[in-house]
Computed example of a mutant assay.
Amino acid sequence: MQIIDVDRFITDGFAKVEAIVPQEVGDAARALLWRQIGLSPDDPSGWTKPVVWASDLTGQGPFGQFTRSPKLREALDAVAGRGGWLPRGSTGNIPVRFPRVPPADDLGWHIDHNTPRPDGTWGVSGRPATMLLLVLFSEVGPDDAPTRVRAGSQRDVAGALDAEVRDLMALGQLFDDAGRDCPVALATGLPGDAYLVHPFTVHAAQEHHGTQPRFMAQMPVMLKKPLAPGDDTPLGRATGW
């Protein structure tokens, strides 16, 4: 059985991988994250901020089951080529979005930093060294602040960037325009689901209109070598180069 729809990834610049771990593993990770942020799923009076940041920096317990998932490994191999990516030791930063409060000022269209500079800072370029992985630790429906994705926008961005490493914040207009006419998809699913997102695919957060907080990791997966013209993996073919 196919783990990931590779054709859809090439066309849309992202694809879902269902149940990279069982749902109960996602539930266990979420319980640890509640404890980490010092809030309770049973006491909405403490939900006063639109976003609270949590993290997994060790890959212990249920978080390690995510990063070592055989399904995830197979999906990444299918998209980036076998051995074309580097395993992660942890799930990294995890924004928790809360309902019933004014939204955060972070809802603009963008791509993530994808290119390291020699001084250790990061920018964006047409030779990205990472791709994006979204991992769900809670059930995310259409009203639960799912990440918005402009399906197919990766080709517009690929055509607009070159080898120069540029400041992400200076490219707001490019990202506003890229894929403007593309259909918008929503990264919905259950705890344990994941999305592989092309480094050029334009995406955005959105306001939470639901009732339960949304827990989702958004982590870069390092590529073994930067993506460049001539790459014949699905990751390369998705650019339209």
Score class of each variant (00 low, 15 high):
Arg117Trp: 10
Pro41Trp: 08
Ala205Trp: 02
Asp231Arg: 01
Thr67Met: 11
Ala78Ser: 15
Thr91Val: 14
Leu72Phe: 06
Glu164Lys: 14
Arg82Gln: 14
Lys225Gly: 02
Phe200Ser: 01
Asp181Trp: 00
Asp231Gly: 04
Gly61Met: 06
Phe175Val: 01
Pro44Gly: 09
Asp231Val: 01
Gly179Val: 05
Ala160Trp: 07
Arg180Ala: 15
Ile10Pro: 07
Thr130Gln: 14
Ala205Ile: 00
Gln36Thr: 07
Val149Arg: 08
Thr188Lys: 03
Ala238Ser: 05
Pro191Asp: 10
Gly13Gln: 06
Pro50Gly: 13
Ala145Asn: 06
Pro234Ala: 02
Pro146Val: 09
Leu174His: 09
Gln65Val: 03
Asp7Cys: 04
Ile3Leu: 13
Gly172Pro: 00
Glu24Asp: 15
Gln36His: 10
Lys224Asn: 11
Asp176Gly: 08
Val157Lys: 06
Trp241Val: 03
Ala29Asn: 10
Val135Ile: 15
Asp193Ser: 12
Asp181Thr: 10
Ala187Pro: 03
Phe9Leu: 04
Val17Asn: 02
Asp193Ala: 12
Pro226Met: 13
Gly159Ala: 14
Glu18Pro: 00
Pro142Ala: 15
Arg155Trp: 02
Lys16Val: 11
Ala104Cys: 03
Thr211Ser: 14
Pro22Ser: 12
Arg8Asn: 03
Thr211Arg: 13
Pro103Lys: 10
Gly108Met: 05
Leu171Met: 15
Asp7Glu: 15
Thr147His: 04
Val21Ile: 11
Val101Ala: 05
Val6Lys: 00
Arg180Asn: 01
Pro116Thr: 04
Val135Arg: 08
Ile94Asp: 00
Leu168Glu: 09
Pro234Phe: 00
Pro226Arg: 10
Gly179Cys: 04
Pro142Trp: 08
Asp43Leu: 07
Leu72Ala: 09
Arg82Ala: 14
Ala129Ile: 01
Val101Cys: 06
Asp193Gln: 10
Thr115Glu: 08
Ala204Asn: 13
Ser90Arg: 11
Gln36Glu: 15
Val96Ser: 05
Arg237Cys: 01
Gly126Met: 13
Gly230Met: 07
Asn114Arg: 08
Arg30Cys: 13
Gly236Ile: 01
Ala163Phe: 10
Gly83Glu: 08
Pro41Thr: 10
Ile111Gly: 04
Thr48Trp: 02
